Computed example of a mutant assay.
Amino acid sequence: MKLSVFTVAAPDLSPEELGEAAASAGIAGLEWRCKETPAELLNEAPSFWGNNKCTIPPDAGEADIDRFRQAAARSGRKAIAVTPYLSCGDVEGTERIMRLARSLDASMVRVGVPGYDRTKPYGELYEQAIGYLREVERLALNYGVKALVETHHVTIAPSASLAHRLVSPFNPDAIGVLYDPGNMVHEGFENYRMGMELLGPYLAHVHVKNAAWRPAAASGEATDHLETVEWTSGWAPIANGVVLWKQVLRDLKAVGYDGWYGVEDFSGTFDTRTMLRAYANQMNRWMEEIL
């Protein structure tokens, strides 16, 4: 079983510390978070999407690239992906990230997908995405880096089937899907096995996290069953959310998936090092139980 960590989930560790912690936990792959960190965030406490110490900038110079490359090499880990926050249509930025991924010996890059907020029709956003992915396909084949469309809530690809609709016109060697059941708790749930079967050769990577739905605080207990109860979704420990990961693993095994499983735990249940060890132990135990 090939385990990796997306470093967004390790905000308090430096690249060197993350490499050592991953090695100690038995996690072989590193997915480097890629984003600019504004100067005003550097004095804040480490956080997933703020002052994340395990982040490489998109315009990284040779010194930064060498640091991240060495952090993987010294710990005996493998850089498998560079994961940025690209906008759909940013072809120049996408090429810059693919060039960076190749410099780090990483084979995958997450690319942009239009968000969906009811202000523009889906059809218009779909055509925009297809035009962008045509350029992405060309870049991916040129750089030898696979582009990933992630199943993600509040985008036009929240589910396996909608992600498949985006990638299906393209070469699966160039463009694939990052399958994220945790995101699909918020929006986009479909029967896991059916979605995997539909994706077929486009199923390129899997992220492992969990989430759950709870009544919104303002709603409280439902005493009048004719009154609306509002619900909200939030992150949960990997074993304790809506996603039944043992079933997901069974389904992935059934369709022949042999790729990476990248942890992205946002629950805050454990400190980073404990989270990495718990993740590796859980995944290995579950895989043994479904054999």
Rank of each mutant, 00 (worst) to 15 (best):
A157Y: 03
S107K: 09
N142G: 09
Y192S: 10
I27N: 00
S219V: 06
I97W: 00
L41R: 15
W260P: 00
E190T: 10
P11C: 09
E36L: 12
F6V: 08
A81F: 05
V208R: 03
V263Y: 01
G220E: 03
L178C: 08
F266W: 11
Q247G: 11
T272P: 02
E17S: 07
A63Q: 05
V8Y: 12
R138T: 06
S107Q: 12
G259D: 03
A28I: 12
G89T: 07
T55H: 08
N281Y: 10
L18E: 00
H164P: 02
W49G: 05
Y192I: 08
L141P: 01
G76L: 04
M283R: 03
A204M: 08
M98F: 15
A147F: 07
Y179N: 02
S47I: 07
S107G: 12
V229W: 04
R67T: 10
T269V: 11
A39W: 14
N191F: 12
L244Y: 15
I27F: 00
R33C: 10
R214D: 08
A129I: 06
L125W: 06
E17Q: 15
E44T: 15
A106W: 01
K146M: 06
E17D: 13
N284A: 11
V8S: 02
E20M: 03
N142A: 14
G19V: 02
F48H: 11
E150V: 10
G112P: 02
E44V: 11
D59E: 13
E36N: 14
K35E: 09
L178T: 03
R74E: 14
T55A: 11
D66E: 13
Y279C: 04
M194L: 11
G89L: 07
W213I: 10
Y143C: 07
G123L: 15
F68E: 01
G188V: 05
L291Q: 13
M98W: 06
L162M: 14
K78C: 03
W286H: 06
E127H: 13
C88P: 12
A81D: 00
A23K: 14
A73R: 12
H152G: 04
E288K: 15
Y85F: 15
A212H: 09
A216E: 15
D251K: 13
L13P: 00
T94H: 03
T7A: 04
N210M: 09
A22T: 01
P84C: 07
Q282M: 15
E221M: 11
T274W: 09
S14Q: 04
A39H: 14
A236N: 01
H205N: 12
P38L: 15
E95L: 07
P201Q: 12
L249Q: 06
